[in-house]
């Protein structure tokens, strides 16, 4: 298996809590530089799967290799090679933009001139140089999210995990956010993203849909629509998720 070409490789990745199987032997590969969408109804096992891939939770059985490291054994290495951002992942609202960058940069081992250079470049890119001393609290939501994304990749990880990054944001800001994601993917960053918005699923190169702890469908959005003989991704998802026996636990 040529793991170097793939950012994520999972093989029968499973997580059990007692009698309950939250993730049931899922296997998939994500290529480098790919935007991979991870979809599923509430309770389908998305979050648990993501936790295993980010090294927050150990698999019960099966295997996952992220950025070349086994999540079961090289957890620390995995954590160093990935970035993570969620809707809830919050920048500290009572710190300034600059202080947030310094803090998170520091966590990932950046310091001194390197950290300053990285911070300056980021602020420039985001057009936030004038807001360096502004409290994050006072920024519009869209800016916060862009800043959060940039901070999540400040240590130049191979992969970034985005957990419903655009919830509740207006459509314009959502588009701007996706433009950033495209940009990052162009430069070779692998994007692993979960979302509730089906139109966003279409922005992904490939998507996987989880139903009842298993991956029920996987492929390019266009191919999936063809497979289910429909024009909307919504419909694909709806048909798959409706079969779920345990959406409501």
């Amino acid at each position: 298996m040529m793991t170097h070409k793939f950012s994520i490789v999972t093989d029968k990745l499973t997580k059990r809590f007692g009698d309950f199987t939250a993730v049931d032997a899922i296997s998939f590969k994500v290529e480098e530089g790919e935007i991979f969408g991870f979809l599923g109804a509430n309770g389908a096992g998305k979050t648990t799967a993501m936790r295993m891939l980010t090294g927050l939770s150990l698999p019960s059985s099966g295997k996952a290799v992220v950025a070349g490291y086994d999540v079961g054994t090289d957890t620390e290495q995995v954590k160093k090679s990935i970035g993570y951002m969620s809707q809830k992942f919050s920048l500290y609202q009572d710190l300034t933009v600059g202080e947030n960058i310094e803090f998170y940069g520091g966590i990932y081992g950046l310091h001194g001139r390197q950290l300053r250079g990285e911070a300056d470049a980021m602020l420039m890119r985001l057009n936030l140089t004038d807001e360096r001393r502004t409290l994050v609290n006072a920024l519009p939501l869209g800016w916060k999210q862009k800043l959060a994304f940039s901070i999540a990749i400040i240590h130049k990880p191979k992969i970034v995990f985005l957990d419903e990054p655009t919830g509740g944001v207006d459509p314009v800001t959502r588009r701007q956010f996706w433009t950033m994601i495209y940009e990052a993917a162009e430069s070779g960053l692998t994007i692993f993203v979960t979302t509730h918005y089906m139109d966003e699923a279409e922005y992904c190169n490939r998507i996987a849909i989880m139903v009842d702890a298993r991956i029920e469908a996987m492929g390019q959005p266009a191919a999936l629509k063809k497979q289910f003989d429909t024009h909307s991704m919504d419909d694909v998802f709806y048909r798959l998720a409706r079969k779920a026996a345990r959406t409501e636990m």
Partner: peptide, 10 residues
């Protein structure tokens, strides 16, 4: 319907 999946939303 915020934060609720597509099936429940429908």
């Amino acid at each position: 319907t915020t934060g609720v999946d597509v099936v429940s939303r429908k």
